[in-house]
Amino acid sequence: MSDRRRINGPSGGTSAPIYSKYLAKDAKKSPERPTRTREPNVLRKMFLKTGVTPSASGSAYLELEASKNPNSTAPGLASLSTSGLKLTCTVHGPRPLPKSAPFSPHIILTTHVKYAPFATRKRRGYLRDSTERDLGVHLETALRGVIIGDRWPKSGVEVIITILEGEEDQWWGDDIGGAVTSAAEWGMMSVLSGCITVASAAIADAGIDCVDVVAGGVAAAVKGTGTGGDTSAPMVVLDPVPSEHKDIIAACIVGYLPGRDEITDLWVKGEIGKDNLTRNSVPGSSYEELADNAVQAALGAHRVLIAALKETTEVKMGRL
């Protein structure tokens, strides 16, 4: 389906060009891939706040800081900066279903995930593409089990997430260099995990009854990164930033309910072969290890989520 309503730019979209002299002239000055400065088990700091959109029943805003490269000497062009993650979520409902809709004994959850056209380096279209629809389905899966739907028969709730700034799938330098890398959309994983967390906050803000607040977490098996460790052996990192890793072997995202110790959504991408086992893993259990780590990441996100909701409650109670 093509977008007939707008006059769109070229579908590929472009950033400002970077001329080769910048890249090639001085090896020192050539832009370098950002490196992961965090420990493998450390998450990025998260900013989460509810009540962004006053007109919605519930809303939340989530932000993951951009990874900085403190000792980079590369030219400070805006187009070279790496982005973090910025999501805003609005929840509309519970509200009555339209009259035309058939009877439903429980609430009908609709999720809608959309990248803003400017969210990623590669421009996105105005209509939802398959990636975005995929994210929507995953988000719905993650949330459906959390909401106590029986309390709202004949009603619907819409969760709408706009990705203002999305995680890159790979470092932009790889695009330029034409280096063949794994073309998988690794950025999606972080985005989905953020989506789950921010949707959870917005649903809580809307006052919809849930069994628990669900938090998203990502873990990835990456090959050889910077700090100290030997570069060959793959290792598991929490909350990976795809631009920081040259080679991501596999990634896993979970929607996790800490209170009930349940997973509502699990998605693994990539393949862990025999030779890609991490150092300290037991053969055959790598995927489980990945999932466990993702759960750990979700626990971290959960803590921030709880703190944000506490803050919301305090503000609300204070006002009342």
């Binding site: 700091k45 900013f47 706040k49 800081e65 910025k86 803590r303 921030v304």
Partner: peptide
């Protein structure tokens, strides 16, 4: 103090919103 540990300060963008 634990819950507040993972919270980041809002970015400039977030500040404009809130």
């Amino acid at each position: 103090d634990i819950p507040s540990a993972g919270q980041a300060e809002p970015s400039d963008f977030a500040n404009t919103m809130f």
